[in-house]
Design a protein around this nucleic acid. Structure first.
Lengths: 115, 115
DNA sequence: CGGAATCCGTTAAGATACTG
DNA sequence: CAGTATCTTAACGGATTCCG
């Protein structure tokens, strides 16, 4: 609800950053948004097939508040909302990509040596 | 329902990696360990000034199980335990550093424009 | 279509006391 | 010094229903 950036001191930018992109779906959402450039609410929900509307909405709001994604509303019927990365959000992509590759290697390792 | 696996497959490594280094203190612990090369339990506890023994121990155990840190016990009195990064853990340092710098910039931005 | 609102169980995390 | 053990609280996340 309200765990935002004022709490964190300048000395813990690692902590700060992890909070901004922690959470169960944030990394994946940012990643999918850079893959597709722009995604509608329903499309995101389909891709994150296990997410509930509550969690998705909540997560998107947090990312928006943190200025990592844009939310563009088309006032038409039926309604249409598109999400995309902000510049600040795009700055995180190299990191997420690095992490993704690292995760791939770890998964591969674990598969090679199933103890 | 039946396409869930293939959708999840190529991107789960993001999810996987986030789970593995998520958690409230993991990023900071890894970062501090690369800064100091090796740290004792008590030293870590002082640096992470707000952590409880329970959380610290639990987090260290998880990192150890995930093979991201080493735990070296000196059988002497009083006891002494030193923690350090494994090779796999060190692979994560560049990206934690990236994230840290990003966090720095964000904090700076927020301080310049307190809305 | 893109949510909001409510209820509820599970897990993460904190406080405190104690130990080899 | 480096933890355990217990208990309590807070946050996370899910299911369902409803709405403009």
């Amino acid at each position: 609800m309200e765990n935002k950036l004022e709490i964190c001191q300048p000395t813990c930018s690692v902590d700060y950053a992890f909070r901004r992109i922690g959470g169960k779906y944030k990394g994946r959402i940012l990643w999918y948004l850079q893959e597709h450039k722009t995604l509608r609410y329903g499309a995101l929900k389909r891709i994150l097939s296990d997410v509930t509307t509550k969690m998705l909405t909540q997560t998107l709001r947090e990312l928006e508040t943190d200025n990592l994604i844009n939310r563009k509303v088309y006032h038409e019927v039926p309604p249409k909302v598109e999400y995309s990365l902000t510049e600040t959000g795009e700055e995180l992509i190299p990191f997420i990509d690095y992490l993704r590759q690292w995760g791939d290697r770890q998964i591969e390792k674990a598969n090679r040596q199933p103890q």
